[in-house]
Design a protein around this nucleic acid. Sequence first.
RNA 1: GGCGGCGUACCCAAGUGGCUAAGGGAGAGGUCUGCAAAACCUUUAUGCAGCGGUUCGAAUCCGCUCGCCGCCUCCA
Length: 485
Amino acid sequence: MKIYNTLTAKKEEFIPLSQGKVKMYVCGVTVYDYCHIGHARSAVVFDVINRYLRYKGYDVIFVKNFTDLDDKIINKAKQEGVSWDTVARKYTDEYYKDMDVLRVGKPDLEPKATEHIEDMIEIIKVLIDKGYAYELDGSVYFEVGKFLEYGKLSKRNTEELIAGARIEVDERKKNPMDFALWKRSKEGEPAWDSPWGAGRPGWHIECSAMSIKHLGDEIDIHGGGADLIFPHHENEIAQSESFTGKPFAKYWVHNGFITINREKMSKSLGNFFTVKEILDKFDPEVLRLFLLSTHYRSPIEFSDDQLRETEISLDRYYSTILRVNSFLEECKIDRISGKTQNAFETNVSQVKKRFEEAMDDDFNTALALGHIFEFMREINRFIDSKPSGMKVKELLQRSKEVLSEFGGVLNIFVRTPEEWYRSLISVKKIGLSEKDIDEKIKVRQDARKKRQWDVADRIRKELEEKGVILEDKEVRTDWRVRVGV
RNA sequence: GGCGGCGUACCCAAGUGGCUAAGGGAGAGGUCUGCAAAACCUUUAUGCAGCGGUUCGAAUCCGCUCGCCGCCUCCA
């Protein structure tokens, strides 16, 4: 299995520190607002990485933190006139709601910054003792010049950084790039006691403290959005490696951004969509599939049109399954058919290998999905060939199992076609119940038996206008909800 | 200014040295069907931003040019 490592800027063979075990830490969200789809992308990407590692048999410990103490939370609290921890709690709850509907699994541990203040203070103390940090008027700074490898992750040297620095320079700092480990709290801000007086931790130290505490000095994978590479992850490396004297993380994994009109989606530009906004118009599985249909490191251009296309793709999956199910119910067992079956059997046994090859290559979900859709065409082609015989049922059963196995890794394709269409009835605001539709179908079937085509066509058209499409099969009529509109 | 990435069909998107350049959507034609829908089949890039170079061989490596974007400040 290969993983692209930001640290070496190369795809590398994945060899965990301890055989068969993977320790993974991912930077989670700062809980000061609703999740936007960029947060969703990161969450979904690392959820899939976690699932695939487990699928491959690794014993994974996955830690993802909550930043529940930060300037943005404090500002939000001021705006809303509530306490900062009320803000943190509210948006933590909202985060969980969004993750649940997106079927993002829970990490093994979800530590919070506020629960690790003591751990952070301990690390800061050691960094001062070791000469990597200095106190200045109740705050503590990390001295970047003392960590010779500073810039190794983001491929920068300190002179360049200073030259291009846009940050406001505190003249008293030894070096403009030195960053806060501990900040003296101002009046009205949350504060904890420390050897340097009342204060609160800087942003970067929390992840070092939580990663080291829960996973140890050295871990296998450290992940997050590409915008965390600098300064957050660079600073984490500096602090952690100065503290432990060991390499902090072996593989650094970063997901790409979502763009809108080719620009990075961001809160400051105001061009963002929250997860909730999208789910008002689309089924959550559509968003999840959309996020996985591009490689995780590439930018994804977001638009409603793209989601509509994804919706059509997903519908292709469910309508294929619906078709397989119908076929299995009506399937007659008699003679064994020949060539098409052999060809299909080969496909069934090969698709798993293809899926794993794709995923082994730096979690190439886009390619993996390509194989899955190709396989679905094979299934449809097989059914079109009107196969018969004992083996047919078994092959189709196995095909469904293979698809749900892949679905388990990507955590899509987890519902029945019926559940999918039921969801679409409400997402697309069809305004009919399943019962209504079934009744209309029944009336229409009677008309069809009597060859009253005008009556049958009228009912079909009436349903179509509401977004329900009918499909006449040999012995029954199935319905679907129209997608992609 | 420094560093990095991207440019593959009408749209989205895999592919980073070697069989006919995956897959999805859209379009056109066909099979099936009472008619449809779905499905399937055929078709849509002698070419991968442009120009040079390396090589027996390049979308894939190297150089230059053009265009777009990101990071260097909080950010998933």
